Computed example of a mutant assay.
Amino acid sequence: MQYATYENTVEKLNRHHITLREIAIIGYDSEKSYLPELTIEQVEEAVISVLHKRVVQHQIWVALELDRLAEAHLLESPLQDLVENDDTLFGVDETLGTAIAMSFDTIGVTNYGYIDKIKVGLVGELDRKGKTTAAVTTFADDIVGALAAAAASKVAHKYAAGTNHTDINLGE
């Protein structure tokens, strides 16, 4: 049996045109006002750290697979319609996003809620793409927002712990 790995997860994200840098940019924008000397590279390191958690890998795989199946019209009704149309009352996509964000404390959840509400950066691009093309991005936008929120939470926790923010080690 093959389990999820970091490399496989990054490959799946890349297939959906999701890069670690774009996720990091959203996380960076969430934290830069609190940590003026924060770098995008530090947040990207936090994204990489988040993606090494097996539970996060599994949630990403499920989410992206549901988008893929819906895009191929392989889900049964009514699930097909709910995912394909990103129904506003569906909420399972936000549940998976919240689960990822929750892996990194309540600040991850509040960051995710904010990112999901305002649809910044790639989150907004994916949300609009799912509404204006045949692509299904119902879960992808929430996964990106959750990963950015989790990375921002890791950054915030490191800073709150008294670490000098110019030398944040986010690999833990």
Results as ranks from 00 to 15, higher is better:
V120A: 14
G130M: 08
K158R: 09
L13V: 01
Y28M: 08
L35C: 14
P36N: 13
V55S: 10
V55D: 11
V43D: 01
E31P: 07
G171W: 13
L75A: 09
D93H: 06
P36S: 12
P78L: 06
V136Q: 04
Q42T: 14
L170N: 03
I115W: 07
A160L: 15
V56H: 03
E37H: 13
H16M: 11
L122I: 14
H165Q: 12
Q57E: 04
N169F: 09
L64Q: 00
A161H: 07
T19E: 01
K53E: 11
T19C: 03
H157K: 10
R68Q: 12
T132I: 09
K131D: 14
I48L: 02
K158P: 01
A101M: 09
L13G: 05
V56P: 00
L170M: 03
T39Q: 09
E7N: 06
D93P: 13
E76D: 15
V120F: 11
T163E: 12
G145D: 00
E22S: 12
D93T: 09
G121N: 07
T133F: 03
G162I: 04
V47R: 03
Q80T: 02
F104K: 04
T9Q: 00
D142N: 14
L64K: 04
A135F: 08
Q2G: 07
A4R: 07
A149N: 00
K158D: 03
E11L: 15
T95I: 15
H58I: 12
I48D: 06
L20W: 04
Y159N: 11
A101T: 07
E37P: 07
Q59Y: 05
V10W: 01
Q57S: 05
D67T: 06
T133M: 08
E94G: 10
R54K: 07
L89P: 06
G171E: 12
T166R: 15
I40S: 02
K158L: 13
E22G: 04
H58D: 12
E172C: 04
I40V: 13
K119C: 09
H165S: 14
D67V: 01
Q80I: 02
H52S: 08
V109H: 00
V109N: 00
G108M: 02
M102K: 12
D81E: 15
D67K: 03
A4V: 06
K117N: 09
A46W: 01
S77H: 13
G108I: 02
L126K: 14
N164T: 09
H58P: 01
L126Y: 06
L69M: 14
Q2D: 11
G91A: 15
V92T: 15
L20T: 11
K158N: 13
V43G: 02
E172V: 08
E76V: 14
T132N: 10
E22T: 10
I60F: 00
I48S: 10
D167V: 08
L66D: 02
I115F: 10
K117G: 08
E44R: 08
G97Q: 06
G97F: 02
V120W: 11
T137W: 04
E11K: 15
K117E: 13
L82E: 12
Y6H: 08
